[in-house]
Design a protein around this nucleic acid. Sequence first.
RNA 1: GGAUGGGUUCCCGAGUGGCUAAAGGGAGCAGACUGUAAAUCUGCCGCGUUUCGCUUCGUUGGUUCGAAUCCAACCCCAUCCA
Length: 372
Amino acid sequence: MKQHAVTYELIKECRRSGARLGRLHTPHGTFETPMFMPVGTQATVKTLSPEELYDMGSQVILSNTYHLFLRPGRELVKKAGGLHNFMNYKLGMLTDSGGFQVFSLGALRKISEEGVMFRSHIDGSKQFLSPEVATAVQEDLGADIAMAFDECIPYPAEHDYAKRSTERTTSWAQRCLAAHTKEDQSMFGTVQGGMYPDLRKLSAEQLTELDFAGYGIGGLSVGEPKAMMYDILGPTAEALPKNKARYLMGVGTADCIVEAVNLGVDMFDCVFPTRVARNGTAMTNSGKLVVRNAAYAEDFEPIERGCGCYTCRNFSRAYIRHLFKAEEVFALRLLSIHNLYFLLDFTKRIREAIMGDRFPEFRESFLKNYHY
RNA sequence: GGAUGGGUUCCCGAGUGGCUAAAGGGAGCAGACUGUAAAUCUGCCGCGUUUCGCUUCGUUGGUUCGAAUCCAACCCCAUCCA
């Protein structure tokens, strides 16, 4: 077994659920799990400064290989001294491999065993991403964690296709590891397998053998019912080694996070809080609140009473709604701050609950009060 | 006082005899958003008992099988002339 630059330390397991309390040791610090990672696709968490992220308790953040590869390009980021220097974020960083773009840019791409041909959504030019290219680009970007290049398939998908795709993800994972040389960076593999338990199990086993530093669970929350996601997630997480971090990719919302923690997941990322914020929706302990709606025109309460975020400490629903109606950019910032704070604080409360041996109670009371 | 242009659904604005409850935009209202092609997208937007009925295009009256569209008078608005 090789020495990884990023390691997971299991601190405590909940005795009445799958929840785990842990620490992620990285070249840029040690971080606590379960953890939510804000997404900064293009080397910026949209609308926010690094200082604002630190203030809300942000630990590891995400950036995206595909997007930075297209613009500004790997050479430029490398010349800048890597992503940390380029965007001046001093804590943990993870780059997604571009595997999700294989899914989300479905109309603009062609997959082969060798890799994926993309038609750039920016200028239409042809671009090629393979396990080797994605790994090399991620080494140039220099995040603490690089993700193996995978294929994220849509839901629904035929078993036959899911099987071939899962096998491809495994062979791509091998190629990624073989190509990876950067010593102060670790690589996580990504489990696929669609909504098929047999494929999930196979994928988890094959990737575990490859001894990645941690494991992403991909291909979930792509449109399937939540119950199905949990059904797949539980066994998948269980099939992964206990001494490695488990990262449910692309999730999400508070209810999904608490359920996934319950099933043994340690890390999360999602565009949901920031995207939804820019579209006028706030996340709260009782579910979403569309602050843009007329109901809040004269509501001078904060988004959520008792919330410690900058937005809630200083501004009312009525004010934020006004900013949205007037299309003022401050509105986007205020809700982005609140939503990220909410999830970061939420995972903190989850950690405290696990530590205090009351995670099942925490989960139950949270879900009871939460409206979808 | 005279001349010309004009008054269209919350606003702007198209429409000049039937295919018009009336284009398009704005405003308003609501919904969606889960490893970011997203400060985006979608729907509603005269009223109602909603595959049908009713009311509406400055006002009143008229022509016509049929009028926002044609005619008359009147009331407003804009510009110009006195």
